[in-house]
Write a protein that binds this DNA or RNA. Structure first.
Lengths: 93, 93
DNA sequence: CGGGCTTACGGTGTGCGTAAATATC
DNA sequence: GATATTTACGCACACCGTAAGCCCG
């Protein structure tokens, strides 16, 4: 599992459609479909139902979405913590 | 930033020494030193002080350690959530 | 010398994008 | 035919491991 896969998953879940998700992520559709599939394979369960209209979350996907957002948000906080800490040690140069 | 970098960072912080961390991670030292450096570069601040005895956490590194562990723990919970959800949908085959 | 971190370098693998295939309405 | 996902394929980038270099007690 990669952080890119988590971001991809969240955006695809929000857009419900690979095309819009791809534009928002500045990537083409093939990487998206591949990474989502790889994520599902690794987790051992499908997260989306593929319909002719797009991708809709399955129950497992809905549960994973909450946690995926949580992970990404904590990661942002981790980055912020270092920024703060180094702002203290290395003031305005 | 990658999940591997987070894991590497946590173990190096715990071992205080690249050699022991490498053994624990089943990887050789060069990838470790490279990934730690890449992480520091991306965050824009050093996390460790390199001493002749090993690597000791700097203040920024100590703050980051807490958050890195948090991210990895949340990731485990995300995996667990999918396992539970699919155990419900797909009972004992 | 011995222990530790780093750099060079060669080879493998991952991952992208373009293009083509498939399916549904 | 339009919109959607997926597969094929070629190429570039990233990453690892071995080997060598460097520094300090």
């Amino acid at each position: 599992m990669s952080l890119a896969q988590l971001e991809y998953f969240v955006v695809v879940a929000e857009e419900g459609n690979l095309g819009r998700a791809a534009k928002r992520l500045h990537v083409s559709q093939p990487p998206l479909t591949r990474q989502i599939r790889a994520l599902e394979d690794e987790l051992g369960a499908p997260l989306f139902a593929r319909t002719p209209r797009g991708m809709t979350l399955l129950p497992a996907g809905r549960r994973f979405l909450t946690h995926a957002r949580d992970v990404l948000e904590r990661l942002d906080r981790a980055r912020g913590a270092v920024r703060e800490a180094s702002d203290i040690d290395e003031p305005t140069s």
